[in-house]
Design a protein around this nucleic acid. Structure first.
Length: 435
RNA sequence: GUGGCUGUAGCUCAGCCCGGUUAGAGCGCCAGGUUGUGAUCCUGGAUGUCGGGGGUUCAAGUCCCCUCAGCCACCCCA
């Protein structure tokens, strides 16, 4: 009422960030758990690394990319150290490898936030989260196959069907340099035929022109030289082995010589997974590749490496679009109702949880009817009722909520046994047949 | 960084074009429908800085300006 009381402007999450609340957060947990299980079976161990690093860790490996040049959250700390929030996962892992020099092959996975200062839109945020793996210390093309197969199988296990795998090879670092020079020359000769927005990129990022969405440019570059036609024999053999492996495993893919990844460090195999269920502009749900020079560029020994990252938010969007990953069923075993003041509920819920049950209760001394409603909504299978009669007699009433069975009165000492018996009956598939 | 659209109860939205009593609906939430029991139904109830600020006006959710946020696209990428 009074104008004198100062109104506090409510805080909101920063631009491009969001809270993940229950029940939706259960999907998030399930996704991470599925991923951990899958890559764990393949020998990848969990790596937890800081979400900020000295800025050089990122700038050294991506000085030519927008992700590093324009989108990093960098800052000076109180000790005047120039730090940056992690814009992508691989550089941090490579830095950890250089620092700890573990034995190879070193196979790790992570679930970590990444930060990029961009304008948010569908499937794009300033803080997003990636699940990823990295395998360092082997240049065996069969490792490329293992890595790609893991991501393919992850999506498949989620039930996703409209995901397309696209692969390319950048060849060796030398192949890549040679190709960039030749494509640049080729584009310069035709620069007047390109869309002006793409023409600007020719000088700095000629390969970026190749995956342009602009019709004018697409028409002009139809017969541009393809990197896959200019690989050295070693690189061609590597790529051939990768393709043979994917074929052998029955993993469908499309070779796309114009596939250009956003980070500069890739050599040999690069790949992306595209969701055809998303109609948003951002349909890449995961991607990665080999980066045989990355560790060296961070001061480590020459070390081959390959990995991928997949965006949790985008995968969940895709799951939503494809109608998979249903909300997990409620897991409440027993809901405790107490109309005698709450002390019995207070003690019993704790005791039930100590006995291994999931137990919920109502607070604030609400009516029996109200507490029953809450019990129903909680999804609990059994209601444990303590009214004045039960309290006096030292018993409780157990009322099954999901099947047509009579409620029973049991001695307090018998609660665990009786509850165990009630819960051992298979839960009904639907809630249609409530009493 | 550029552009388009949108911001009204917890959620989804109507009202805004043609300014005018206490700002509405559905869902959700809370309570009640006799003495202790979950669907449905009935009754009642609570919650609104009408994104924020400024301006025009006797009067603004409604008109104008600025700003912030959200969504979408470019760019870039997970």
């Amino acid at each position: 009422m009074s104008e004198s009381s100062a109104r506090i402007e409510p805080f909101k999450a920063p631009v491009g960030t969001h809270d993940v609340l229950p029940p939706a957060s259960a999907h998030w947990q399930a996704l991470v758990a599925n991923f951990a299980t899958m890559v764990g079976r393949a020998g990848y161990g969990f790596l937890q690394s800081p979400m900020f690093e000295e800025i050089g860790v990122f700038s050294r490996v991506g000085e030519g990319t927008d992700v590093v040049r324009k989108e990093m959250y960098d800052f000076l700390d109180k000790g005047n150290r120039h730090l940056a929030l992690r814009p992508e996962g691989t550089a941090s892992v490579a830095r950890a490898f250089v620092q700890h020099h573990p034995t190879t092959p070193w196979k790790v996975w992570y679930a970590a936030p990444s930060f990029r200062y961009e304008r948010p839109q569908a499937g794009r945020f300033r803080q997003h989260h990636q699940l990823g793996i990295e395998a360092l210390g082997s240049s065996d093309p069969d490792l490329d196959v293992e890595v790609i197969a893991l991501l393919w199988d992850f999506y498949a296990a989620l039930g996703l069907r409209r995901v397309e795998l696209v692969i390319n090879s950048m060849g060796t670092a030398e192949d890549r340099r040679t190709y960039i020079a030749s494509i640049q020359k080729w584009l310069e000769e035709r620069i007047d035929h390109l869309d002006p927005a793409d023409a600007e990129k020719v000088a700095d990022h000629p390969m970026r022109v190749l995956d342009s969405k602009r019709p004018i440019t697409i028409a002009a570059i139809g017969d541009a030289p393809r990197i896959t036609d200019h690989l050295s024999s070693d690189a061609a053999a590597h790529f051939e082995r990768v393709r043979a492996g994917l074929d052998s495993l029955g993993i469908p893919y499309r070779v796309e010589p114009r596939l250009v990844r956003g980070l500069d460090y890739y050599t040999h195999t690069t790949f992306e997974f595209i969701s055809h269920a998303l109609d948003a502009a951002q349909s890449t749900i995961g991607g990665g590749g080999r980066y045989d020079g990355l560790v060296e560029s961070l001061g480590g020994p020459p070390t081959a490496g390959i990995g991928f990252g997949t965006g949790i938010e985008r995968v969940l969007l895709t799951c939503d679009a494809e109608g998979v990953l249903d909300a997990p069923a409620a897991t409440v075993d027993v809901y405790v109702l107490d109309t005698t003041g709450g002390a019995a509920a207070r003690d019993l819920t704790v005791e039930l949880r100590r006995s291994g049950f999931s137990a919920e209760r109502a607070f604030d001394g609400r009516s029996m009817k109200s507490q029953m409603k809450s019990a129903d909504r909680s999804g609990a299978r059994v209601a444990l009722i303590i009214g004045s009669d039960e309290l006096e007699a030292g018993v409780v009433t157990l009322r099954p909520l999901r099947e047509d069975r009579p409620q029973i009165t049991v001695e307090r000492a018998r609660i665990v046994d009786e509850l165990t018996a009630l819960l051992s009956i298979p839960a009904p598939q639907t809630s249609e047949d409530l009493p």
